[in-house]
């Protein structure tokens, strides 16, 4: 199902790609020479894709960030890590499967990993709760971070969530407390924390594992104080105004860089990460490696002071 999923604005491209594939097949089956026609169509495809993807609206980028074929945390973990060992549970209540935690070897270096996990099929979506964490998920994440600190292993975090779970049980178990505590404690974790926003970064649900030394963001990801739908429902009193809300919220990677909330945009292949996951793994992997080397060499006191100052500066105030 999701393998064939196509967004509205992707349709002309996918259509043309199909045509080219058909022509190739026909040419080889029937042994006819169509290379010039194919080449011309490919050029056309190139222009079309350039045109479509160079002027995506913020709302279209949100859709790309939610693309069901987009790589999820476990895809990155599997691409990056050898000998990945997952750990489970918060030792208090349950194991939250909306977040994957464990240890792995990244280019031979030991790392701890925390990643919010979505799924593509119905059953998986329920198990992963659509990537929406409960309090026990934030507490599990803190557990692995404390372990990482104890054994002096840097931490890689992958953010991809439509928000912390809004439910009765989540409130009963202290969703606010779990997120607040994580945010504060992440400022005290004495090993490097490298954050990668790979899809959706919604609100406190993202920030609850979002404090780190460097924040990388894939080109077609979004990060915001509230989802476009949530914002539309409150300010426009109409969820359907999500595209307007997305524009107003300024939530793209480019916006984040301009607002000095993130450090670096990781470019995606034209059309988004799902069109060439391997290419994205390579680019993000290289960047993470560089960041690990840089922050791994910092003395702990300086590391924590810089982490604090980084967030201390954020915001815009005027003085009268």
């Amino acid at each position: 199902m999701s393998a064939g999923f196509v967004l509205e604005f992707e349709k002309p491209i996918v259509e043309l790609e199909r045509k080219i594939a058909e022509m190739r097949e026909f040419a080889s089956d029937e042994n006819v020479e169509l290379s010039r026609e194919i080449e011309s169509l490919e050029q056309k495809l190139d222009r079309l894709a350039d045109e479509i993807y160079s002027k995506l609206t913020r709302w279209e980028k949100v859709q790309l960030a939610r693309h069901p074929r987009r790589p999820y945390s476990l895809d990155y973990i599997n691409a990056f890590c050898k000998d990945f060992l997952e750990i489970h549970g918060d030792r208090g209540f349950a194991d939250d499967k909306a977040v994957v935690c464990g240890f792995g070897k990244f280019n031979g270096q030991k790392v701890a990993v925390v990643g919010q996990q979505k799924a593509r099929d119905t059953k998986g979506k329920l198990i992963r709760n659509f990537g929406m964490m409960h309090p026990e998920g934030y507490r599990k994440a803190m557990r692995v971070m404390r372990l990482a600190e104890k054994f002096n292993v840097p931490i890689l975090i992958f953010i991809d969530t439509p928000g912390a779970y809004p439910g009765i049980d989540a409130e009963e178990r202290g969703q606010a407390e779990a997120i607040a505590r994580n945010i504060r404690e992440m400022f005290r974790i004495k090993v490097p924390i490298i954050i990668s926003i790979i899809g959706e970064g919604a609100s406190g649900g993202a920030l609850g594992i979002g404090v780190g030394d460097v924040i990388l963001m894939l080109e077609n990801s979004w990060y915001s104080v509230i989802s476009p739908e949530g914002c539309a429902a409150i300010l426009w009193r109409d969820q359907a105004k999500a595209s307007e809300a997305a524009e107003a919220l300024k939530l793209t990677a480019q916006d984040m860089l301009q607002l000095e909330v993130i450090d670096k945009i990781i470019p995606e292949p034209r059309g988004g990460a799902h069109r060439n996951p391997q290419g994205v793994y390579e680019l993000l992997g290289k960047e993470i490696q560089a960041q690990l080397e840089h922050y791994g060499s910092l003395e702990t006191g300086r590391l924590l002071e810089q982490r604090m100052q980084k967030f201390r500066r954020m915001g815009e105030v005027l003085q009268i």
Binding site: R184, V225, C231, L259, F311, R312
Partner: peptide, 19 residues
């Protein structure tokens, strides 16, 4: 909401100092 992501980051800023 009107300050978007910068509002969210105030959560981190204040919590950092509380640490």
């Amino acid at each position: 909401m009107q300050e978007g992501i910068l509002s969210l980051m105030q959560m981190a800023k204040t919590s950092a100092l509380l640490a």
